[in-house]
Protein backbone atom coordinates (compact mmCIF):
# COMPACT_ATOMS: atom_id res chain seq x y z
CA UNK A 1 0.00 0.00 0.00
CA UNK A 2 2.37 2.64 -1.07
CA UNK A 3 1.01 4.47 -4.07
CA UNK A 4 0.94 7.99 -2.81
CA UNK A 5 0.01 10.54 -5.38
CA UNK A 6 -2.87 9.62 -7.64
CA UNK A 7 -1.73 8.58 -11.08
CA UNK A 8 -2.35 11.20 -13.70
CA UNK A 9 -5.09 10.34 -16.07
CA UNK A 10 -5.26 11.93 -19.49
CA UNK A 11 -8.98 12.49 -19.43
CA UNK A 12 -9.38 13.60 -15.86
CA UNK A 13 -7.65 16.11 -13.77
CA UNK A 14 -6.54 14.62 -10.49
CA UNK A 15 -8.38 17.19 -8.44
CA UNK A 16 -11.64 15.67 -9.54
CA UNK A 17 -10.76 12.52 -7.64
CA UNK A 18 -8.91 14.19 -4.80
CA UNK A 19 -10.65 15.79 -1.85
CA UNK A 20 -11.14 19.50 -2.39
CA UNK A 21 -9.49 20.23 0.90
CA UNK A 22 -7.04 17.93 2.63
CA UNK A 23 -7.66 16.71 6.13
CA UNK A 24 -4.15 16.94 7.54
CA UNK A 25 -4.78 14.45 10.35
CA UNK A 26 -5.96 11.77 7.93
CA UNK A 27 -3.92 9.03 6.34
CA UNK A 28 -3.47 9.44 2.60
CA UNK A 29 -2.31 6.01 1.48
CA UNK A 30 -4.45 5.02 -1.49
CA UNK A 31 -6.88 2.20 -0.92
CA UNK A 32 -9.30 2.21 -3.82
CA UNK A 33 -8.99 4.27 -6.95
CA UNK A 34 -12.10 4.93 -9.02
CA UNK A 35 -11.91 6.42 -12.48
CA UNK A 36 -14.69 7.32 -14.87
CA UNK A 37 -17.09 4.80 -13.36
CA UNK A 38 -20.44 4.47 -15.12
CA UNK A 39 -23.20 2.08 -14.17
CA UNK A 40 -26.51 1.29 -15.83
CA UNK A 41 -29.53 -0.59 -14.52
CA UNK A 42 -30.81 -1.85 -17.84
CA UNK A 43 -31.10 1.37 -19.83
CA UNK A 44 -31.11 3.90 -17.03
CA UNK A 45 -27.77 5.22 -15.95
CA UNK A 46 -27.33 5.26 -12.18
CA UNK A 47 -23.69 6.32 -11.88
CA UNK A 48 -22.16 8.93 -14.16
CA UNK A 49 -18.43 9.22 -14.58
CA UNK A 50 -17.35 8.91 -10.97
CA UNK A 51 -13.78 9.67 -9.94
CA UNK A 52 -12.60 9.30 -6.39
CA UNK A 53 -9.58 8.16 -4.40
CA UNK A 54 -10.46 6.42 -1.17
CA UNK A 55 -7.74 6.44 1.49
CA UNK A 56 -6.66 3.76 3.90
CA UNK A 57 -7.44 3.86 7.61
CA UNK A 58 -10.02 6.55 7.12
CA UNK A 59 -13.73 6.73 7.51
CA UNK A 60 -15.16 8.07 4.27
CA UNK A 61 -18.84 8.92 4.37
CA UNK A 62 -21.04 8.96 1.28
CA UNK A 63 -24.02 11.24 1.64
CA UNK A 64 -26.78 12.46 -0.62
CA UNK A 65 -30.50 12.29 -1.20
CA UNK A 66 -32.02 8.85 -1.59
CA UNK A 67 -31.66 7.43 -5.07
CA UNK A 68 -28.50 9.43 -5.73
CA UNK A 69 -26.42 6.30 -6.31
CA UNK A 70 -24.36 6.23 -3.12
CA UNK A 71 -25.37 2.68 -2.20
CA UNK A 72 -24.95 1.55 -5.78
CA UNK A 73 -21.46 3.03 -5.79
CA UNK A 74 -20.63 1.31 -2.51
CA UNK A 75 -21.68 -2.03 -3.96
CA UNK A 76 -19.38 -1.46 -6.95
CA UNK A 77 -16.43 -1.59 -4.60
CA UNK A 78 -16.91 -5.28 -3.80
CA UNK A 79 -18.91 -6.20 -6.89
CA UNK A 80 -22.13 -6.92 -5.04
CA UNK A 81 -23.87 -5.47 -8.09
CA UNK A 82 -22.88 -8.64 -9.94
CA UNK A 83 -25.87 -10.23 -8.27
CA UNK A 84 -28.24 -8.02 -10.26
CA UNK A 85 -28.40 -9.40 -13.80
CA UNK A 86 -29.39 -6.14 -15.54
CA UNK A 87 -26.43 -4.14 -14.24
CA UNK A 88 -23.77 -3.00 -16.67
CA UNK A 89 -20.58 -1.34 -15.47
CA UNK A 90 -17.88 0.61 -17.29
CA UNK A 91 -14.82 2.30 -15.90
CA UNK A 92 -12.08 1.54 -13.45
CA UNK A 93 -12.24 0.48 -9.83
CA UNK A 94 -8.68 -0.31 -8.80
CA UNK A 95 -7.43 -1.88 -5.63
CA UNK A 96 -3.88 -3.00 -4.93
CA UNK A 97 -2.99 -2.18 -8.54
CA UNK A 98 -5.66 -4.47 -9.98
CA UNK A 99 -8.87 -3.64 -11.77
CA UNK A 100 -11.57 -5.29 -9.70
CA UNK A 101 -13.90 -5.55 -12.67
CA UNK A 102 -11.31 -7.27 -14.83
CA UNK A 103 -12.08 -10.75 -16.07
CA UNK A 104 -9.28 -12.34 -14.12
CA UNK A 105 -10.37 -10.81 -10.86
CA UNK A 106 -12.17 -13.31 -8.68
CA UNK A 107 -15.08 -11.46 -7.09
CA UNK A 108 -14.99 -13.85 -4.15
CA UNK A 109 -11.37 -12.95 -3.49
CA UNK A 110 -12.29 -9.29 -3.79
CA UNK A 111 -15.07 -9.62 -1.25
CA UNK A 112 -12.72 -11.44 1.06
CA UNK A 113 -10.65 -8.21 1.14
CA UNK A 114 -13.53 -5.79 0.89
CA UNK A 115 -16.10 -6.75 3.50
CA UNK A 116 -19.53 -5.31 3.86
CA UNK A 117 -22.07 -4.57 6.58
CA UNK A 118 -25.67 -4.05 5.59
CA UNK A 119 -28.52 -1.87 6.66
CA UNK A 120 -30.50 -4.74 8.14
CA UNK A 121 -28.46 -7.07 10.32
CA UNK A 122 -29.15 -10.66 9.35
CA UNK A 123 -27.09 -13.10 11.39
CA UNK A 124 -26.62 -16.57 9.93
CA UNK A 125 -29.02 -19.19 11.21
CA UNK A 126 -26.63 -20.58 13.80
CA UNK A 127 -24.85 -19.66 17.02
CA UNK A 128 -23.09 -16.40 17.82
CA UNK A 129 -19.79 -18.27 17.83
CA UNK A 130 -20.43 -19.91 14.47
CA UNK A 131 -21.53 -16.62 12.94
CA UNK A 132 -18.01 -15.35 13.44
CA UNK A 133 -15.94 -18.52 13.18
CA UNK A 134 -17.54 -19.69 9.94
CA UNK A 135 -15.88 -17.40 7.40
CA UNK A 136 -12.32 -17.46 8.84
CA UNK A 137 -12.49 -21.23 8.93
CA UNK A 138 -13.57 -21.40 5.32
CA UNK A 139 -10.76 -18.99 4.40
CA UNK A 140 -8.22 -21.21 6.20
CA UNK A 141 -7.33 -18.31 8.50
CA UNK A 142 -7.48 -20.64 11.47
CA UNK A 143 -6.76 -24.31 11.68
CA UNK A 144 -6.74 -25.18 15.36
CA UNK A 145 -9.74 -24.88 17.63
CA UNK A 146 -7.77 -22.71 20.05
CA UNK A 147 -6.87 -20.26 17.26
CA UNK A 148 -10.48 -20.14 16.29
CA UNK A 149 -11.63 -19.39 19.84
CA UNK A 150 -9.04 -16.66 20.06
CA UNK A 151 -10.11 -15.14 16.76
CA UNK A 152 -13.77 -15.17 17.73
CA UNK A 153 -12.94 -13.46 21.00
CA UNK A 154 -10.78 -10.85 19.29
CA UNK A 155 -13.43 -10.06 16.70
CA UNK A 156 -16.11 -9.77 19.35
CA UNK A 157 -13.85 -7.56 21.47
CA UNK A 158 -13.03 -5.34 18.50
CA UNK A 159 -16.74 -5.06 17.80
CA UNK A 160 -17.36 -4.16 21.43
CA UNK A 161 -19.66 -7.12 21.91
CA UNK A 162 -17.51 -9.51 23.89
CA UNK A 163 -18.67 -8.53 27.37
CA UNK A 164 -22.28 -8.83 26.39
CA UNK A 165 -22.12 -12.25 24.75
CA UNK A 166 -19.13 -14.06 26.21
CA UNK A 167 -21.40 -16.27 28.34
CA UNK A 168 -23.80 -17.19 25.58
CA UNK A 169 -21.65 -17.85 22.55
CA UNK A 170 -23.64 -20.94 21.67
CA UNK A 171 -26.97 -19.14 21.58
CA UNK A 172 -28.43 -18.31 18.17
CA UNK A 173 -27.30 -15.05 16.64
CA UNK A 174 -30.89 -14.04 16.17
CA UNK A 175 -31.45 -14.01 19.94
CA UNK A 176 -29.52 -10.73 20.22
CA UNK A 177 -31.05 -7.26 20.10
CA UNK A 178 -30.96 -5.28 16.85
CA UNK A 179 -27.94 -3.22 17.84
CA UNK A 180 -26.10 -6.29 19.09
CA UNK A 181 -26.93 -8.13 15.88
CA UNK A 182 -25.42 -5.29 13.87
CA UNK A 183 -22.25 -5.41 15.95
CA UNK A 184 -22.24 -9.17 15.48
CA UNK A 185 -22.33 -8.58 11.73
CA UNK A 186 -19.45 -6.12 12.08
CA UNK A 187 -17.51 -8.66 14.15
CA UNK A 188 -18.27 -11.22 11.47
CA UNK A 189 -16.87 -8.87 8.83
CA UNK A 190 -13.67 -7.97 10.70
CA UNK A 191 -12.98 -11.61 11.63
CA UNK A 192 -11.95 -12.33 8.03
CA UNK A 193 -9.38 -9.50 8.31
CA UNK A 194 -10.34 -7.51 5.25
CA UNK A 195 -8.61 -4.34 4.10
CA UNK A 196 -11.79 -2.40 3.56
CA UNK A 197 -15.16 -2.52 5.28
CA UNK A 198 -18.12 -1.09 3.43
CA UNK A 199 -21.08 -0.08 5.52
CA UNK A 200 -24.43 0.50 3.90
CA UNK A 201 -26.46 2.66 6.27
CA UNK A 202 -25.41 0.47 9.16
CA UNK A 203 -27.36 2.36 11.80
CA UNK A 204 -30.55 3.27 9.99
CA UNK A 205 -32.46 0.36 11.53
CA UNK A 206 -31.15 0.99 15.04
CA UNK A 207 -32.08 3.02 18.10
CA UNK A 208 -29.99 6.09 19.03
CA UNK A 209 -27.99 4.35 21.75
CA UNK A 210 -27.01 1.45 19.49
CA UNK A 211 -26.21 4.01 16.80
CA UNK A 212 -23.84 5.84 19.13
CA UNK A 213 -22.13 2.56 20.03
CA UNK A 214 -21.58 1.73 16.39
CA UNK A 215 -20.29 5.21 15.62
CA UNK A 216 -17.72 4.85 18.40
CA UNK A 217 -16.84 1.49 16.98
CA UNK A 218 -16.21 2.92 13.52
CA UNK A 219 -13.87 5.45 15.03
CA UNK A 220 -11.88 2.64 16.63
CA UNK A 221 -11.98 0.30 13.65
CA UNK A 222 -10.44 2.86 11.29
CA UNK A 223 -7.11 2.26 13.00
CA UNK A 224 -7.09 -1.13 11.28
CA UNK A 225 -9.42 -0.84 8.32
CA UNK A 226 -10.49 1.46 5.55
CA UNK A 227 -14.12 2.23 6.20
CA UNK A 228 -16.51 3.52 3.59
CA UNK A 229 -19.97 4.20 4.93
CA UNK A 230 -23.18 5.30 3.33
CA UNK A 231 -25.37 7.37 5.56
CA UNK A 232 -28.46 9.45 5.13
CA UNK A 233 -27.75 11.04 8.47
CA UNK A 234 -25.54 14.09 8.00
CA UNK A 235 -24.83 14.44 11.70
CA UNK A 236 -23.43 10.94 11.64
CA UNK A 237 -21.19 11.76 8.70
CA UNK A 238 -20.02 14.87 10.52
CA UNK A 239 -19.29 12.86 13.67
CA UNK A 240 -17.46 9.85 12.25
CA UNK A 241 -16.04 10.64 8.83
CA UNK A 242 -12.62 12.02 7.93
CA UNK A 243 -13.70 12.64 4.37
CA UNK A 244 -17.17 12.99 2.94
CA UNK A 245 -18.41 12.67 -0.62
CA UNK A 246 -21.70 14.23 -1.63
CA UNK A 247 -23.63 12.36 -4.31
CA UNK A 248 -26.39 13.81 -6.40
CA UNK A 249 -28.18 12.17 -9.34
CA UNK A 250 -25.43 9.63 -9.86
CA UNK A 251 -22.57 12.11 -9.74
CA UNK A 252 -20.09 13.07 -7.06
CA UNK A 253 -20.71 16.74 -6.55
CA UNK A 254 -18.15 17.30 -3.89
CA UNK A 255 -15.46 15.26 -2.15
CA UNK A 256 -14.02 17.09 0.79
CA UNK A 257 -12.60 17.11 4.27
CA UNK A 258 -15.68 16.46 6.40
CA UNK A 259 -15.21 19.51 8.62
CA UNK A 260 -14.77 21.77 5.66
CA UNK A 261 -17.73 20.30 3.81
CA UNK A 262 -20.10 20.87 6.67
CA UNK A 263 -18.87 24.38 7.39
CA UNK A 264 -17.90 25.86 4.04
CA UNK A 265 -18.86 23.54 1.20
CA UNK A 266 -17.26 24.24 -2.13
CA UNK A 267 -20.39 23.64 -4.15
CA UNK A 268 -23.70 25.39 -4.10
CA UNK A 269 -25.61 22.10 -4.37
CA UNK A 270 -23.79 20.71 -1.35
CA UNK A 271 -24.68 23.73 0.66
CA UNK A 272 -28.32 23.47 -0.38
CA UNK A 273 -28.40 19.84 0.65
CA UNK A 274 -26.62 20.34 3.94
CA UNK A 275 -28.80 23.25 4.88
CA UNK A 276 -31.82 21.04 4.22
CA UNK A 277 -33.20 22.61 1.05
CA UNK A 278 -33.79 19.18 -0.43
CA UNK A 279 -33.15 15.64 0.41
Amino acid sequence: MNSQAPVMNQQHTPDVAQPYTRNEQACHDLSIRVRDLNLWYGKSQALKGLNIDLFQKNVTALIGPSGCGKSTFLRCLNRMNDLIPSVHIEGLVEMDGQDVNAGKMDEVALRRRVGMVFQKPDPFPNSIYENIAYAPRMHDLVSRKADQDELVEKALRDAGLWNEVKDKLQEPGTSLSGGQQQRLCIARAIAVQPDVILMDEPTSALDPISTATIEDLMDKLKEQFTIVTVTHNMQQAARVADYTAFFHLGEIIEYNDTKVMFSTPAQKKTEDYISGRYG
Binding site: A109, M116, F124, P125, A135
Partner: peptide, 19 residues
Protein backbone atom coordinates in the same frame (compact mmCIF):
# COMPACT_ATOMS: atom_id res chain seq x y z
CA UNK B 1 -29.75 -10.03 3.00
CA UNK B 2 -28.62 -13.33 4.46
CA UNK B 3 -27.13 -14.43 1.14
CA UNK B 4 -25.47 -11.06 0.65
CA UNK B 5 -24.09 -11.19 4.16
CA UNK B 6 -22.36 -14.42 3.34
CA UNK B 7 -21.16 -13.37 -0.12
CA UNK B 8 -19.79 -10.15 1.35
CA UNK B 9 -17.56 -12.24 3.62
CA UNK B 10 -15.95 -13.77 0.55
CA UNK B 11 -17.96 -16.97 0.55
CA UNK B 12 -18.56 -18.70 -2.75
CA UNK B 13 -22.09 -19.15 -3.97
CA UNK B 14 -22.00 -22.86 -3.20
CA UNK B 15 -20.81 -22.25 0.35
CA UNK B 16 -23.48 -19.63 0.83
CA UNK B 17 -26.19 -22.03 -0.28
CA UNK B 18 -24.87 -24.97 1.68
CA UNK B 19 -23.98 -23.22 4.92
Amino acid sequence: SMRQGSLALGMTKGETIRD
